[in-house]
């Protein structure tokens, strides 16, 4: 019974939860401002969750976690920068950015999906490097693109767009502040959480439609899917489209909450962080649920949020970035070396 419980929870999740609890206790005893910390946890959870949810379609369709997420992310960045270029503000800017990002992301996802169908079994490696490549191509794009908005180009003489574009007064924390309120010193980013909930519901419905179920059948056992008259490649392609479109919208939500658009090399490792978040939530490389994505996003981000101030007090050095690298890559390694369950029967 005990063993069963452990298996269900998963050892990594257990360790991380205990560690988190320990850090929270430490933060209390150091007398750190807990209200702020909890607010930050909620915000970080909300701003990352769509990027993590974007992993679900490809995992379910058997293409593994979407290491090619940058394909979607850059589309979101294009949407967001266009909104500023057109001098849009507030919800107009936000919805414009989302409206541009999603179709662009879908197209990018379609192209990426065509590639994925040709490299079955090696999606992770190929996806990672293709993601890296597209980020560096976009670096050239950001340098050369004919943007004019003074908020985005370098003020004097530099080439192209700035490394970070400030969203102050455009759509900074638009969702976070929507209907937000404060309880016991904890600010609840209501709009952001509502948006997250909406995404979850939409994804939940989608995964239970005939198409969504087909996707999951394809991922669970491609031979079974073929025998049931399903076109495996079609559903894998669709998964990539949905995932990249979610990634595109996800980075817009992320950016508005963060208050900056990060260009150039910033999207490089974002896929890795999303992959590790969902794995921390207990997903495997073959199966993932919305709950796992949410739990993972919360645990991972809560840990990072609280580690920074605690480490600062305890040892006077910034250990949070190091921790992020170790935990996120550690969990991926753990998933890679686990005995594969299921998989392609061929």
């Amino acid at each position: 019974m005990d063993n069963d419980f452990l298996n269900k929870l998963g050892i990594p999740r257990l360790i991380i939860s205990l560690f988190l609890a320990f850090l929270v206790a430490a933060a209390f005893s150091f007398g750190l401002p807990m209200g702020q910390i909890f607010s930050a946890m909620l915000t970080r959870f909300g701003m990352n969750s769509l990027l993590v949810l974007a992993m679900i379609p490809t995992i379910q369709a058997g293409a593994g976690p979407n290491f090619g997420l940058p394909f979607g992310i850059i589309c979101g960045l294009i949407g967001a920068t266009l909104a500023i270029e057109l001098d849009l503000r507030g919800f107009t800017a936000f919805f414009f950015a989302i409206g541009v990002s999603i179709p662009l992301g879908a197209i990018a996802g379609w192209l990426y999906g065509l590639l994925l169908n040709r490299v079955k079994g090696q999606e992770m490696t190929v996806g990672t490097y293709m993601g890296f490549s597209i980020v560096s191509v976009m670096c050239i794009f950001w340098l050369m693109a004919p943007y004019k908005s003074p908020e985005m180009v370098w003020p004097y003489g530099g080439d192209g767009l700035r490394v970070t574009v400030v969203l102050d007064g455009r759509m900074e924390q638009l969702l976070d502040r929507f209907l937000s309120f404060t309880v016991n010193g904890v600010t609840i980013p209501t709009g952001l959480l509502l948006a997250t909930a909406l995404c979850c519901v939409l994804l939940w419905i989608f995964m239970r439609t005939r198409t969504g179920l087909a996707m999951s059948v394809v991922g669970s056992n491609p031979r079974f899917a073929e025998a049931s008259g399903l076109n495996v490649n079609k559903y894998r392609l669709l998964a990539s489209v949905v995932s990249c479109a979610m990634g595109a919208a996800g980075i817009v939500i992320y950016s508005q909450s963060y208050g900056f658009i990060q260009l150039y090399q910033a999207p490089l490792y974002m896929a890795l962080y999303s992959v590790s978040a969902i794995l921390i939530g207990g997903a495997s490389l073959q199966r993932a649920t919305i709950t796992q994505a949410l739990i993972g996003t919360f645990l991972f981000n809560a840990l990072l949020v609280i580690a920074l101030p605690v480490a600062n007090v305890a040892m006077d050095s910034d250990i949070s970035e190091i921790m992020r690298v170790i935990i996120s890559n550690g969990i991926i390694l753990y998933a890679l070396t686990r005995k594969e369950v299921g998989g392609d029967a061929r």
């Binding site: 669970s220 056992n221 031979r223 008259g229 369950v341 029967a345």
Partner: peptide, 17 residues
């Protein structure tokens, strides 16, 4: 290899096709 979705429930296996 072909007949079952091993990591899905009995009920979903029965109705999937």
């Amino acid at each position: 290899g072909t007949g079952l979705l091993l990591d899905d429930s009995i009920e979903f296996n029965i109705v999937a096709t």
